[in-house]
């Protein structure tokens, strides 16, 4: 009897344990109770931030493109030599 009770309680607790994941729903997008960067949106500073990170990414990409060009030039020069 004790064993049965123990097993049933264990199963109950296991099923409760499995419930700790919460699905993302459409309501989560409207939940104003959670603090987000709304101020940055309202005064437009989030766009400044996007611009700044955009410049960082753009700079890195320009650097990669230039490296690519340099290697292509070297490859051409080598092929002309040989």
């Amino acid at each position: 009897m004790k064993k049965l009770l123990f097993i049933s309680l264990l199963m109950l607790s296991l099923s409760l344990y499995a419930q700790d994941k919460i699905e993302i729903t459409g309501e989560d997008y409207q939940n104003k109770g959670v603090e987000m960067a709304d101020v940055m949106r309202s005064n437009g500073k989030i766009y400044v931030l996007t611009g700044i990170i955009g410049i960082v990414l753009g700079g890195i990409l320009v650097y990669v493109v230039q490296t690519d060009r340099k290697i292509t030039n070297l490859e051409k020069q080598y092929n002309e030599l040989s």
Binding site: I24, D28, N31, G33, Y47, L49, T50, L57
Partner: peptide, 15 residues
């Protein structure tokens, strides 16, 4: 570019 712009500006769930 899309990752950066949409990643920073698109709607995300408020968790």
């Amino acid at each position: 570019a899309y990752t950066l712009i949409a990643g920073l500006l698109a709607d995300v769930p408020r968790l």
